[in-house]
């Protein structure tokens, strides 16, 4: 069984395509990287897999089921810059949010939830900062808080958007350790990453993206000079143009899968 299976997925913002014809799989229990230039659609891909964006065409299945049925098994970690860190909350409050998915609507977190939150904080080495204000954290500490929140949820599939961006060596070490521990515990981890060197040495599975999926598979097969040139040599103007025109035809858009 695959953790993620995408068939011919297209996602549009208005009339502009961010993803087109994306077909790929991520095997269960592997460490996968999503790689591609800026604006390639990496964040869009992750958000579509997390069920945050409507998929206009094609289908995404997680653990061989529709996303809506397995939401309790996926943990999404947005880009750090996507939130306002000058927010009147403490670190512990944010990590507790990781438990909200295990609670009913309006239900208060209980003892177990606090225990799990503290555990996650210890895991990322932030327990001494639990009662700090968010506004007082450094970039690396913010990233650790986000990681702790994702861990507190205790999911089977982790989707992390650029967790390695703008952090120091110590935080990178913590992140790598946690990611490996998750993988060893049989979880699947998908990470958007910009450093091809790290990707080649740390990850097992790579998805090379630029509007469409240029290649997806084991690191050795994907990171070839040919593929990289295709991905980073600029977005195919022809494909963008064709996709824009195709988007006007409702029949094409409505087709589910290919």
């Amino acid at each position: 069984m695959n953790a993620i299976e995408c068939r011919d997925v297209a996602v549009f913002y208005g009339r502009r395509a961010a993803l087109w014809g994306v077909t790929c799989q991520v095997p269960l229990g592997c460490l996968a990287a999503v790689v591609g230039p800026n604006g390639a659609g990496k964040s869009t891909f992750l958000r579509a897999v997390a069920g945050l964006l409507p998929v206009q065409r094609g289908e995404i299945r997680l653990f061989a089921r529709p996303i809506a049925e397995v939401r309790s098994r996926i943990s999404y970690m947005p880009q750090r810059e996507s939130v306002d860190w000058d927010f009147p909350l403490t670190v512990l409050d944010v990590v507790l949010m990781g438990r909200y998915g295990r609670l009913k609507l309006f239900q208060r977190p209980g003892r177990l939830d606090y225990e799990r939150a503290w555990e996650a904080l210890r895991h990322v080495g932030m327990e001494q900062h639990a009662h700090r204000q968010l506004g007082e954290l450094s970039g690396g500490q913010q990233q650790r808080v986000f990681l702790a929140r994702a861990l507190a949820y205790d999911a089977d599939l982790y989707l992390m958007d650029e967790p390695f961006a703008g952090i120091d060596a110590a935080t990178e070490q913590v992140l790598l350790e946690v990611v490996h521990e998750l993988r060893d515990a049989g979880k699947t981890v998908v990470v958007v990453h910009h450093d091809l060197q790290v990707v080649a040495s740390v990850f097992e599975w790579v998805m090379l993206l630029n509007l469409h999926m240029i290649a997806a598979g084991p690191v050795g097969e994907v990171l070839t000079a040919q593929h990289l040139h295709e991905a980073y040599g600029g977005r195919s103007a022809l494909l963008s143009e064709v996709v824009q025109r195709v988007a006007l035809h409702r029949e094409v858009m409505r087709r589910k899968g290919a």
Binding site: A50, R71, F87, L89, D93, M97, Y100, L105, F106
Partner: peptide, 25 residues
């Protein structure tokens, strides 16, 4: 009643929407 959800939605709506919660209410 909805204090915890309102706070979390204000801070990071994307994270919350990925959870299996009927946030529409």
């Amino acid at each position: 009643l909805a204090f915890k959800e309102l706070v979390a939605l204000s801070f990071d709506a994307q994270f919350l929407r990925a959870l299996p919660l009927p946030l529409r209410w």
